[in-house]
Design a binder for these strands. Sequence first.
RNA 1: GGAGAGGUGGCUGAGCGGUUAAAAGCAGCAGACUGUAAAUCUGCCGGGCCUAGCGCCCUACGGAGGUUCGAACCCUCCCCUCUCCA
Length: 303
Amino acid sequence: MTPVVIAGPTGSGKSALALRLALACGGEIVNYDSMQIYRGFDIGTAKPSRADRKAVPHHLFDIIDADEEFNAADYARIALPVCDAIDGRGRVPILAGGTFFYLRALLSGLPSMPGRNESIRARIRRIAAAPNGPMRLHRWLSRVDAVTAARIPPPDRHRVERALEVWITTGRPISSWDPPGDDELPSLKIALRLDRATLVESLDARVEAMYRTGLVEETAALLRRFPRSARPFGAIGYREAAAVVAGELDVASAIAETRRRTRAYSKRQLTWLRAERNVHWLDAKNREETFAAALRLLTEVRS
RNA sequence: GGAGAGGUGGCUGAGCGGUUAAAAGCAGCAGACUGUAAAUCUGCCGGGCCUAGCGCCCUACGGAGGUUCGAACCCUCCCCUCUCCA
């Protein structure tokens, strides 16, 4: 049975649609959102409610703590068996989320390269911090892997860092591993579309609501348990809320900044999705119609 | 009424005689995405023309004049904002 993927920009109603589909067809929801993975980060990630999670089995939410290392490869590793198990029970895995890189890691797989190596990362970062560091790192990369260096701009520190990390640990350029091929796991991909003005409006309202319902308080509580340097504190909303807690930002500015980043994020998601193939786009303006259309697609695929 | 400060592209805001269609940021648009991905990064961004060039032509730094080879930058008057004293 092919899994169903619900995609679309943040705030387009993916979770709600996934829930209704699950209820309608005996499905179980599998998260592919990089932030809803974290325990305790609820308000800012718009995590499904307790009631929703009781109504339908939800998987891969709240599986790690803020200070634990986790990445796309880890995700693919654990998500695959989860989907298989759902399938084994004769139910439909419904993937819902917004981290399309994680989704790709699951559906297409990642090359079998070595993972992260913190001590090597530390070494690289020491060089990066020196004057002209990023430039020097990029030049280093050019010498060992010209192909990758040509593709990655010097300021793109994350990618330069990873490419060098792979080189140092294996002695092989990262470009020598095959890029993900076209042979991805078959799935029914449904993407939600909303006109920009409507989307932005609902995004703004949602950010407002997050602060009103205690995003800053939630963040303050999490900061008592985890260092601010922990990954999810860099996420949209949490970065700003953490700044409020630290007294660096007033709430109004935090809201404005969170809105700005949310809008930019939704745009990036759309850019990714546009390049994605075999996507069934559905207008998300009317929930009933969207649901009906999605259901139709689903029954088509199953017959 | 008196004393200051200021009016710059959609916004914030630099520039203070030429190399300025005007820094930078934001917003906007397009894009990338091989283990940090809600991350990270790239390009475009007044308008028109074409022989497509470090090309040409318009329009543009509140308004109108002036000085100058040349003005967003200097002078004059006007209009408008803000702060302070009354």
